[in-house]
Design a protein around this nucleic acid. Structure first.
Length: 202
DNA sequence: AATTTGTGCAACCGCCCTTCG
DNA sequence: CCGAAGGGCGGTTGCACAAAT
């Protein structure tokens, strides 16, 4: 049995949002708060899919968004976190206040990937391209779901961790996990200091 | 100046997970 | 316990603008 569509596609607008639509969404959320995305468009007087409203709010209209270019520090943190989590953009975004998963994902695909490649680093494995051809790196990243089954409750999670050198701990939080990974030495030593500071903020 | 190619980013799509009746 | 609904996520697309020819 298929699922019902999230909205009546025949009666919804698509494509770029207009200023009027943005304003309707902002006004509605100011008055009623986030949530109930499916019913929101109707209540707010928008001819949009609920998912589309949610995306627009989270990625563009939220007042706490940073916007603007990524700093070198953010850039390096993204690389580091990606080496740990892989394409878990929401997890990475959780560590960068004011940035959204979509923004980070776009930034990764357009800037960081290219930058790493130009330095001879495989953006998937975070190892030098020659090396990663022969030795696949951290399969743990390919199965983050099994390690972190619930991103929402991320700070509460306990997890098994292990470094490449074989050291392992148990019962650590993700923040601890990050610090431990930072201690594992691969390619991004120059970032570690900054990350250690940043990640303690959780 | 006109056309082509490349780049960046907002938005959509479809699947998965969680919640709730 | 089961199934439907809602929400969240990652991958991908398409458009607007910039740079190159």
């Amino acid at each position: 049995m298929g699922r019902s569509p999230c909205c009546e596609k025949a009666h919804t607008n698509k494509g770029a949002w207009t200023k009027e639509e943005d304003q309707l969404l902002i006004d509605y959320i100011r008055n009623n708060g986030e949530g109930s995305w499916r019913s929101l468009p109707k209540s707010a007087g928008l001819l949009r899919c609920g998912k589309s409203c949610r995306l627009r709010w989270i990625n563009y209209l939220r007042p706490d968004l940073k916007r603007g270019n990524f700093t070198d520090g953010e850039d390096q943190i993204i690389v580091k976190l990606h080496s740990i989590f892989g394409n878990k953009w929401s997890l990475i975004a959780g560590k960068l206040p004011g940035r959204t998963d979509n923004e980070i994902k776009n930034y990764w695909n357009t800037h960081v990937k290219r930058k790493l490649l130009s330095h001879g680093i495989d953006p998937k494995t975070h190892r030098s391209i020659n090396e990663s051809k022969t030795t696949p790196f951290h399969t743990r990243n390919e199965d983050v779901k099994s390690t972190f089954p619930d991103h929402n409750g991320v700070s509460k999670l306990k997890t098994e961790t292990s470094c490449e050198n074989g050291a392992s701990t148990s019962g650590t939080t993700i923040d601890e996990e990050l610090r431990l990974n930072v201690e594992c030495d691969y390619s991004y030593d120059h970032v570690d200091k900054e990350l250690n500071l940043d990640l303690t903020l959780g």
